[in-house]
């Protein structure tokens, strides 16, 4: 795939971030192209979630530059809310709004941020709820739903904003094993439709099947990246090999 000829959605250059004296991100540079599916793997504490969260500025960074869809988010004059409107994010812990029904969860930001009317928003919401297969629960409150169902609602909520890029921060890590499949299924469909996705996950099967590119991170650095078959079969770095061995043994 000649990704280079396509438009860059995210340009990250020489990113550095410190938690106190700990270097959480160390000279990370990464370009994400329109329609590309990137999976980031690595041990816990490797900085993969931190990297993901800097892209929509849930985490700040200390040095470097991030340009999202032409907007430089390191520039103080950039309205971060405008950037975030274009980026959907799915969290490990779902983070649905517990005081709102499923439909209201999906409607809310559309009405407040996109200024859609309730009917307009609801029509869009129902479309996405249908797509993630949970329209029949639209009037339930989140706590009545299983983890897998909640996560699918969270995906619909993000998609309803019609983002150009979707970030997934370990979307299946908090799920019971039998529910992982339904969430990954929704994500695969999304990938097939051509959504640009960056996914932090431990699901190697998903990475192998869906990713255009897999990135291995450790100690806040990108250690290795490549096409999934190449990276999984013949990793060039010792650390990658070690990590993959541990992960695959556990599965």
């Amino acid at each position: 795939m000649s990704a280079d000829k396509r438009r860059k959605i995210v340009e990250i250059s020489h990113l550095e971030k410190y938690f106190g004296t700990l270097k959480a991100l160390d000279q990370v540079s990464l370009d994400i192209y329109d329609g590309e599916k990137t999976v980031i793997i690595g041990p816990s504490g490797s900085g993969k979630s931190t990297l993901l969260r800097t892209i929509n500025q849930l985490e700040t960074f200390d040095r470097g530059r991030i340009i999202v869809d032409g907007m430089d988010i390191s520039d103080k004059n950039t309205d971060i809310n405008k950037v975030r409107e274009e980026i959907g994010m799915v969290f490990q812990s779902f983070n649905l709004f517990p005081h709102k029904t499923v439909l209201e969860n999906v409607n809310m930001a559309q009405m407040i941020v996109r200024r859609r009317s309730r009917d307009e928003a609801a029509a869009i919401s129902e479309g996405f709820l249908q797509k993630v297969g949970i329209l029949d629960k639209k009037n339930e409150y989140p706590q009545k739903l299983s983890g897998g169902q909640q996560q699918r609602v969270a995906i619909a909520r993000a998609l309803a904003m019609k983002p150009k890029l979707m970030l997934f921060d370990e979307p299946t890590s908090a799920l019971d094993p039998e529910m992982i499949g339904e969430v990954l299924g929704v994500m695969k469909n999304l990938a097939l439709e051509g959504m640009t996705m960056i996914v932090v996950t431990h699901e190697m099967g998903f990475a192998r099947e869906v990713a255009d590119r897999v990135i291995f991170m450790d100690y806040g650095k990108i250690i290795e990246e490549g096409r999934p078959d190449a990276l999984f079969r013949t990793p060039t770095q010792e650390r990658t090999r070690l990590f993959l061995k541990q992960i695959l043994k556990a599965m």
């Binding site: 929509n56 849930l58 975030r84 409107e85 980026i87 959907g88 983070n95 649905l96 709004f97 941020v113």
Partner: peptide, 13 residues
């Protein structure tokens, strides 16, 4: 929970 603020902000609020 602080995830609530993050979810809301990530949606552009």
């Amino acid at each position: 929970h602080k995830g609530q603020m993050e979810a809301a902000r990530s949606l552009g609020m």
